[in-house]
Design a protein around this nucleic acid. Sequence first.
DNA 1: CGCTACATTGAGCTCCTTCAACGACGGTGG
DNA 2: CCACCGTCGTTGAAGGAGCTCAATGTAGCG
Lengths: 245, 245
Amino acid sequence: MELKPVNACHDCPIRHSAVCAECDADELKVLERIKSYKTVPAGAHLAEAGREMEFLSSIISGCATMSRTLEDGRRQTVGLLLPSNFIGRPGRASSPYDVEAISEVTLCRFERKAFEDLVRSTPHIATRLMTMALDELDSAREWAVVLGRMSAREKVLSFLVRLARRNAAQMGQDAPEDALTLHLPLSREELADYLGLTIETTSRQFTALRKDGLIELPSNRDVHIPDFDRLAIEAGEDEDGGLIA
Amino acid sequence: MELKPVNACHDCPIRHSAVCAECDADELKVLERIKSYKTVPAGAHLAEAGREMEFLSSIISGCATMSRTLEDGRRQTVGLLLPSNFIGRPGRASSPYDVEAISEVTLCRFERKAFEDLVRSTPHIATRLMTMALDELDSAREWAVVLGRMSAREKVLSFLVRLARRNAAQMGQDAPEDALTLHLPLSREELADYLGLTIETTSRQFTALRKDGLIELPSNRDVHIPDFDRLAIEAGEDEDGGLIA
DNA sequence: CGCTACATTGAGCTCCTTCAACGACGGTGG
DNA sequence: CCACCGTCGTTGAAGGAGCTCAATGTAGCG
């Protein structure tokens, strides 16, 4: 994740996967005029439920979560935001969820009003946003199946499979390597909030998967998967491949 | 739900809430040329996971569910499709979910290729699709909170609150009436699949809510809510209003 | 070295599921 | 007309997956 400072779009690591992916050179110039970069430390709040947002932004590097906390403290993470993901939406001033930086995050920001005008005048941005929204919709529904019907073990397995697929896709690979090591962007507690479990149950499942030889745990944040296909089968994969992240 | 045959867009009950909502008269003429109506009986499969779709369509009347069935038979419904909802997406030939008519459903259909061309050439359709996708994304995430963190009782309450809000919105009301009667579009089993519960637990929760005086059950498919605000509070509403459907 | 934050492990309990029986309703056919 | 049957919904009893509460373990850091 070591990143040299980005100054221009043609240097940008998410140039071809973010909201600007379909833009041509002229459109990119307009974007370039209204964009600004910002790096925030882990723990920063990028949006708060109900609070007005001044900027819409793309994640260039780092990781953030989108979550809802109920008043009794229960919390559910509804999205894991990684590079190229978009925060905020045109046509609405506030996010319905809290968005929090989990690691240091570098953003490419657009002042909201200016971006909304741009969406109207630049079809390539509107169609790209539509595609991204539809992809995320599939992903959210996919996750609903996990939350609604899967056991704790399957939830953890599904998470690992999705993360591996997402990483592979970002590296331009078609499928994850046979054997690979994942770095977990989330702590056990953050993971539990994502999986709809408690931290204890999550931890127990990691231990159980280790004892079953499906994973190794070189550190708390690293998971080595000796045989990805076996993991995917255990996760309950029928369709070969499934959707990415 | 008694519906007289629709023949032209200006007569259409979903004219101002469907994918065509932002279209002007000229754009509507183009749509009119490629659209066709179709009515299917309850139980019809409007899409099957992985199978190619010939048409994209809007629901004009009736109700459908979008769901995934795992090979061991577990099933999770990830979306409840009501009038004005769109089935399918441009740029992808197949749906990742099964879409099934729950009641008789009347559709406004577009041949896929023709519609995809139209999206590219008609910005008002692209922006409307984007807005609808973003709304559904919020809705799907909202439901993830319910699936991941709520008790059986809260799940049933949340469903009733959402259904009431969605009905009210469709009637052009700002909020549901103080006292109202809901017609459930789903059987107990279909509801259980949506809530991530078993049919037995779902049934028990209805009984419990009735005993607590929160609802009355004039028939299996009808729920009378004497005091909507009380129901909403029981459902764990902090924010006044929340998102629609 | 002790402090703090994070992760793991254990024991008991709760809520939901599972398995099973029963009830209500509607259609069909004798 | 009513017995029969199928579907759907409700209710009961027992078991289990995951939660809660609590203790222990471990790594980073002043």
